[in-house]
Every structure is written in structure tokens, then in C-alpha cells.
């Protein structure tokens, strides 16, 4: 198996892993992290497609490393992912500031007032 395919499978696994974390983790910060994991898995799939496109060309002697269109899309995606993460973090910190909670569980305010370190 070529390294490119390997990284493609890796990206697929990361999407699954991130999806699990996004659904199962009660903590919002961890959900944000898991969401970023899904994003990077998808970007990796784009990267694999870009590399394959370049490989076919290199065989034809075009002298291009990779397909620049998916690569440019990934750069765009990374910037947007950063912006989305910044908003999510700001929302989370505001949520904690107002309610003392850092989960999206039911309304029952389990952690307010938050006894530090104790888990419910």
C-alpha cells in the first residue's frame, strides 16, 4: 500500500474518532477539539486526492507536485476552521462566565457553583 493511501485511511479513521468524541464527550472544550479532529481528517482526504492528482501528472511528465486546487481549498479550510474555533471558544468562555457550566448537558446546573475537581 502506498503512503498516500495509508494517509487516506488515516484521515477516514480520524473522522470516525472525532465524530465519536463530538457525540460522546460532555465537555464543550473536548467537543471543540473533536470537531477540529473531524476537520483535519477531511482535510487529509483532500490532501490525498491532491497528491494522487499530482502523481498521475508526474507520471505524464507535467512536473507538478500535487493538484493545487484541493491544496488551496485546504488552506482556505484551515483559516475558516480557526475562525470557527475562535468563536466556539469565545461562546464557551461566555457560557462559563454566565452559568458556571462547561457542558451541554440538560439544564440541571450540575457544576454551579462549581466545586473544583469534583466530578458529577
Amino acid at each position: 500500500m502506498s503512503g498516500t493511501t495509508l494517509f487516506g485511511l488515516c484521515g477516514a479513521a480520524l473522522v470516525g474518532l472525532g465524530l465519536y468524541g463530538l457525540i460522546c464527550h460532555p465537555g464543550v472544550l473536548r467537543k471543540i477539539l473533536a470537531f477540529n479532529l473531524i476537520g483535519s481528517g477531511v482535510f487529509l482526504l483532500f490532501g490525498v486526492i491532491a497528491k494522487r492528482g499530482g502523481g498521475a501528472l508526474a507520471a505524464a511528465g507535467a512536473g507538478v507536485d500535487g493538484d493545487p486546487v484541493p491544496q488551496a481549498l485546504v488552506i482556505t479550510g484551515l483559516v475558516v476552521a480557526f475562525a470557527a474555533t475562535a468563536i466556539a471558544v469565545a461562546l464557551l468562555l461566555r457560557l462559563v462566565e454566565l452559568g458556571g457550566r462547561d457542558t451541554l448537558e440538560d439544564e440541571a446546573p450540575r457544576r454551579a457553583p462549581p466545586p473544583p475537581g469534583r466530578r458529577s
Binding site: 472544550l29 462547561d102 448537558e105 450540575r110 457544576r111 462549581p114
Partner: peptide
């Protein structure tokens, strides 16, 4: 700015 331990609960 958050409590160190991840909150419990979840499905």
C-alpha cells in the same frame, strides 16, 4: 479558564 478535569456525564 475551565475546571481541570473534564466534566463527567454524557451518554
Amino acid at each position: 479558564r475551565l475546571p481541570a478535569e473534564a466534566p463527567g456525564g454524557g451518554p
